[in-house]
Structure formats: C-alpha cells, structure tokens
C-alpha cells in the first residue's frame, strides 16, 4: 500500500516541480514586465508621438517577447525585450512611411518626419510632446523632453537604452540589432545634440 502511494506521489512530485518552476518564472516575468512597462511606454511614446499607438506597441512587445523568448534566462530578458520593442517601433515607422507615401496627398500627417538619405538613423520625429506632470523645475523638464523628442530615432533609442534603462554597450547592440560601434556612434551623437540643446539650462561648463 505504501509503495503504491509512493509511486503515485513520485509522479505528482515531478509534475509539482515542473509547475513550481513555471510559477516561479511567471512571477519573475511579472516583476520584470512591471519594471520595464513604464519606460517602454515612454520610449514608444517618444517614437510615435501618440499614447494609444505607444500602448499598442508595448502590448505587442510584451506578447512578442513572451512568445519568442519565454525560455531564455532572466539575465537576457532586458535586451531581448527592448529588441522586440525596437522592432515594433521600426515597424510602426515603416507602416507610416508607406501610408504617407501612398496617401500623403489625402491626409497631412505632421506627426512624422521623412527619412533622410541615410535611412532610419536620421528619422526625426516631429511629434509634439504629450501632457506630462511637471517636477518643480517645469521649464527644465519641458526642455529635456523636447530635446529628447528632437533626436533622430536611432540616436534616441540608443540614448534611452544606455542612459535611462542602463543597458551596457553589448546589451544595447543586441536590443537595437546593430554593432557595438554603431551604439557608441549613436550615443555620442545623441549626447552631443542633447548637450547643445540643454546647455542653456545647465551650469555645467562645456567640454574643452
């Protein structure tokens, strides 16, 4: 009798262990998504200029991330999630470019600029900043957001991933599907542009 109960329980233990691991990973995933969702939303909002579009992109990114990278270790989640987010943002811009090319004479879309000759890198989003709750220094906050908004798409993505999200060069390259050299170039240009725009709002002397 005891042997029979043990054999039944052994099968249940294996199932329980598998279920336990699943639940543990699920909780980790929940914590991770909760941590990144707001920053992801702001990144998407900078790129699209529209909160509804940004929310849709974030939702698609979460689903895509779970479908494609569910079995990856947790240490690899940040660059992989932002890789999906970056892809969704680029898809959004490509769709808009096609749409404006075909129907631009019907609808004037002042939210998105045209790509420069050198492609996506020089895409400038002309979107107006959305409503933000301000910190004590409202003027500085507005200047910061306007400066970030004015960056070309790839430079902005690189800046936000490196500086705000805190990804290192390798992880940022993974997220943006480019080389580490390109990451350094994008970031360097982004920092130069931001510094130029924000110089009047900071007391830090310019670099020699």
């Amino acid at each position: 009798m005891n042997a029979i109960v043990w054999s039944v329980n052994a099968n249940d233990v294996n199932a329980t262990l598998a279920t336990g691991d699943q639940e543990r990973v699920r909780k980790q995933l929940d914590r991770f998504l909760k941590d990144v969702e707001r920053r992801a939303l702001r990144m998407a909002e900078y790129a699209t200029g529209n909160r509804d579009d940004a929310l849709e992109i974030v939702q698609e990114s979460m689903l895509g991330f779970v479908r494609h990278y569910r079995d990856k270790p947790g240490t690899e989640w940040p660059p992989l999630f932002y890789r999906v987010l970056d892809s969704k943002i680029l898809d959004f811009h490509r769709r808009n470019q096609v749409r404006s090319r075909w129907f631009g004479w019907l609808v004037r879309d002042s939210r998105h600029g045209e790509a420069a000759d050198d492609g996506l890198e020089a895409i400038i989003d002309a979107a107006e900043p959305g409503p933000y709750r301000r910190t004590a220094d409202a003027e500085t906050g507005q200047a910061v957001h306007a400066a970030i908004q004015a960056l070309p798409l790839r430079q902005r993505q690189c800046f936000l991933l490196r500086v705000w999200e805190g990804l290192d060069v390798a992880a940022t390259a993974t997220a943006m599907k480019c080389s580490e050299g390109s990451v350094k170039t994008h970031l360097s240009r982004a920092l130069a542009s931001l510094k130029l725009r924000l110089e009047s709002h900071h007391e830090t002397p310019p670099l020699a």
Partner: peptide, 8 residues
C-alpha cells in the same frame, strides 16, 4: 535628465 525621465 535621468531624474526627469523617471518622474515623467
């Protein structure tokens, strides 16, 4: 900038 982004 980081602080402003976090606040926003």
């Amino acid at each position: 900038i980081h602080r402003e982004l976090d606040a926003d």
